[in-house]
């Protein structure tokens, strides 16, 4: 029997990865498919609750570790307001480090809703960005942020006195992808910045945007932002397809 004869939905599955034509028993979905969804959900749940392990970022000891006011993952999920502000010790630490600058840009590895995404995508991305910007930008040491929302970068950037903050942050996990990373860049960061004042590059994962492509877009946006002096909705991503950078493989 050919594959086609076995699965009359075969030709239609080419057009969508929605769960169409699932095998049925009575009214219900066949057990194998029920368990497949449960497995995907379990991975997503694990990604949401995972704590970011700086050792997995492969940066040795050369990073600054900060925390938001959300004390654990459960509070982080419930209280987005707390995830946008640094706790006391983190503020003190950044103030202590700031005089080592000045820097143009800081990269922040922030767990967001998927620490797994940061652990997988941030290391190659960080390496690529540092290599691409090495001669023209003064780059601060990597900041690793726990229980962090996007806006936490505003406070980090302001305390370090940088011109731009780039949050590398885990997206809310879906069933098909639980390790997707977003980049948010904010020029002249300070507490109270609106989301409309940021630029975002999303969907960085093995089956989405590669880390090389992400780096290419980011560098284009950074260069444009420096020229214009702002980020946000008025800065449109008009980067061409990448030609500048060597391909970086996602581990």
């Amino acid at each position: 029997m050919s594959q086609l004869a076995q699965d009359p939905w075969g030709p239609l599955r080419r057009y969508t990865h929605a769960r169409i034509g699932l095998p049925r028993t009575g009214d219900s979905i066949a057990g194998s498919e029920v368990r497949a969804l449960q497995a995907a959900h379990a991975c997503a749940r694990r990604a949401v609750h995972a704590c970011l392990d700086p050792a997995k970022l492969a940066v040795g000891d050369s990073f600054i570790e900060v925390r938001s006011q959300a004390k654990d993952r459960s509070e982080f999920v419930r209280r987005p307001d707390l995830g946008r502000r640094l706790d006391g010790p983190s503020i003190a630490l950044l103030k202590q480090i700031a005089p080592a600058g000045p820097w143009d840009v800081v990269l922040v590895a922030a767990d967001g809703l998927s620490a797994v995404a940061v652990e997988r995508q941030a290391p190659p991305l960080q390496n690529a960005v540092r290599a691409a910007l090495a001669h023209t930008w003064r780059i601060a040491p990597l900041v690793v942020a726990h229980n962090a929302r996007v806006a936490l970068g505003d406070e980090i950037g302001a305390l370090l006195g940088v011109r731009c903050v780039v949050m590398m942050i885990g997206e809310r996990p879906g069933l098909s992808v639980s390790d997707s990373l977003s980049l948010y860049m904010t020029w002249n960061p300070h507490v109270g910045r609106q989301d409309s004042e940021r630029n975002c590059i999303s969907n960085i994962h093995a089956r989405g945007l590669s880390t090389g492509e992400g780096c290419h877009k980011l560098c284009w946006l950074l260069k444009s932002a420096r020229k214009l002096g702002y980020t946000g909705v008025a800065l449109k991503d008009e980067s061409t397809n990448m030609t500048l950078l060597p391909e970086t493989k996602t581990p």
Partner: peptide, 9 residues
């Protein structure tokens, strides 16, 4: 389809 919205995640 299958309880999984692949657009709205």
């Amino acid at each position: 389809p299958g309880g999984d919205d692949v657009m709205l995640s």
